[in-house]
Design a protein around this nucleic acid. Structure first.
Lengths: 215, 215
DNA sequence: ATTATCTATAGATCTATAGATAATGC
DNA sequence: ATTATCTATAGATCTATAGATAATGC
């Protein structure tokens, strides 16, 4: 029996369905491990249709993620809050960073994956991140130095502080499948866990730099 | 011109060369992105030879990594040092963990990659890690509780503490290509950086849990 | 007439195997 | 005679394109 060309409801726009499904699969397995055949199967259309709309797999990927990578990274920078209190500045950076990640929980994995898998794309992403990191660091550096001179914060570079925040915020997402398995978390339980974890991250980052009597 | 079957020095054992090259490429790009064709090319032999020695790509991978995964993970557990001083226990865990990672800098990436890429292998790895984490946590739990009750350490779960250590130790390696690019590090400079970073990790982890007057 | 969808297929891989040939150990 | 290496090739993908056909908008 020949496949009839399905007439679809206006609501089920096939082009959009392809984008949705592709995003899911790319985030799940990375670019290289995703085949257009699989996307088509999940959408319920023919594989050729993906090329009709997006010409190449590469373009489909770029359409979905070029923007996301940039906004994901620059959001981290923009989140800095002017506050008299350095502690509040640190807290707000951690919290908005954590918030952004939780909205794109699989993006860190994908960035790392593309980084090692696709040297060309890596250069592009890395350059953008380089600028972003540069401006974030210089943005916080002077404030940090003041705190250190005032003896309220131990001697630490802005980069190390920045890495502490990134590490603690990102690792749980990168290791998510493992953590979920080890702790028997459902997806909802994992989300709940990351919410609680955010306060933990702040306590660790801040406790790790603020100066008290005994080390 | 027909390729002559190269007569090799005893020293250049081809089977061993295949193992060496395969390890490099697997660590660099992950299982799926590595082709036996590429391994053969770098070794300088025919692709069929890889199958002669290892039968399948899967078996070659397992020969290289099954052991590594287990030893990498269990080394983390075994590193716990009995000490009267809880602070020293934490320090020794961090340092030996960090030491093991620095000996296998690309392994964390590979584990994460296989985790998401290969569901079957994931189950195997995850089960082993689950046991390992379980025994590590229960090993440190009673000591931690004592410290908390004595008011020397803030209220924190063993799992959160464990995650703090893992996050801070592992993230720099997982993000290594990115960090190297952002900071213009050569490989040697990156290694030097991780050495310095180890003290930073201890200060953060310990500062993040020890109790002082002001929060 | 234009746009959306399908069928069929070319051309590139890639893994694995069969079978030929050269090298080595006795 | 056995072991190591090569050539050639089958069979599975996978991406991308050409060309047929159905649906839609006018």
């Amino acid at each position: 029996m020949a496949n009839k060309k399905v007439r679809r409801e206006k609501s089920e726009n096939v082009e959009q369905m392809i984008l949705n499904v592709a995003e899911d699969i790319f985030l799940e397995k990375g670019y290289a491990m995703t085949s257009t055949t699989e996307i088509a199967k999940r959408v319920g259309c023919n594989q050729a249709l993906i090329h009709y709309y997006f010409r190449t797999k590469e373009r489909l990927f770029e359409k979905l993620f070029e923007k996301k990578f940039v906004s994901f990274i620059s959001a981290v920078v923009l989140s800095k809050e002017r506050s008299a209190n350095f502690k509040d500045v640190v807290r707000s950076i951690i919290e908005s960073h954590s918030e952004i990640i939780s909205q794109n929980p699989r993006l860190p994995f994908l960035i790392i994956n593309e980084m090692t898998t696709n040297p060309v794309r890596f250069r592009v992403i890395a350059e953008k991140i380089k600028d972003t990191v540069g401006s974030l660091l210089s943005g916080i550096d002077s404030e940090l130095k003041k705190e250190i001179e005032a003896g309220r914060v131990r001697d630490i570079s802005a980069f190390d502080l920045f890495l502490n925040i990134l590490s603690l915020n990102l690792f749980v997402y990168i290791a998510q499948p493992l953590i979920s398995h080890v702790r028997d978390y459902s997806f909802e339980e994992f989300v709940k866990f990351t919410k609680l974890r955010s306060e933990e991250v702040f306590l660790t980052v801040w406790g790790g730099i603020c100066i008290n009597e005994n080390i």
